[in-house]
Nucleic acid binder design. Structure first.
Length: 202
DNA sequence: CTGGGGATCGAG
DNA sequence: TCGATCCCCAGG
């Protein structure tokens, strides 16, 4: 088991990239870390979906629609967009690209790396295979809430991304859970690490 | 498969 | 103001 340097953060300027480049070159295989209640929890990002800003009918900011909820999507890349849905879950996006281009990348699944004991508590005894394999689950496991992290700087010391140490093999698929989202619902904008078991849906 | 749960935002 | 909808999950 290789030792991870949790201070080896992805630099601010990487977040200015196009979202598709960022997912493939930086995000998949990187480690998402939080410190909440004094505990470090972290997981390797194994699956993510691009929400391609103004031109994506499944994106909250389609046609530059700006509301109180999605306002942080319009900020400069390198912040978290966390929102509440289905009455009980949070979901987290990484915002990328220059300010004014509301591109988000939904983190869909992680492979647990550190803080497993705390994750098990927060996930109410779910089996380890299911601790972080879904956008709602991983927010529970890392205690990512809107109050704490919406708009948070991803190069900070409460929530951040650590650079990956190897280039993963990447596969693509249709996005999940957007059946009623118009023209772009079938775009192959879901990306995941080939052969990794920590994927939310096959 | 089902239903819970509450914020959200456009329609009225 | 109101209510259909929502990038989901646990349980059966």
């Amino acid at each position: 088991m290789q030792q991870i340097d949790f201070s080896n953060k992805i630099e601010k300027e990487k977040y200015l990239k196009d979202p598709f480049d960022f997912v493939k070159e930086d995000l998949l295989g990187a480690c998402l870390c939080t410190v909440v209640d004094g505990v470090l929890t972290a997981g390797k990002i194994t699956e993510a979906e691009v929400y391609y800003g103004a031109h994506d009918s499944a994106c909250h900011a389609y046609q530059y629609r700006k509301t109180p909820r999605n306002a942080v999507m319009f900020e400069e890349g390198g912040v978290a967009y966390v929102y509440f849905t289905y009455g009980m879950y949070f979901q987290m996006n990484v915002i990328v690209s220059p300010a004014g281009e509301p591109n988000g990348i939904l983190i869909r699944s992680l492979e647990p790396v550190t803080g497993l004991e705390e994750m098990r508590k927060r996930r109410h005894g779910a089996p380890d295979k299911n601790l972080t394999t879904g956008p709602g689950k991983l927010c529970q496991a890392l205690k990512i809430t809107r109050e704490a992290f919406n708009g948070a700087d991803l190069t900070g010391d409460q929530i951040w991304l650590v650079k990956r140490d190897e280039t993963p093999k990447i596969k693509t698929a249709k996005r999940v859970g957007i059946e009623n989202s118009g023209k772009d619902k079938n775009k192959p904008w879901r990306f995941y690490i080939k052969d990794n078991p920590f994927i939310s849906k096959k």
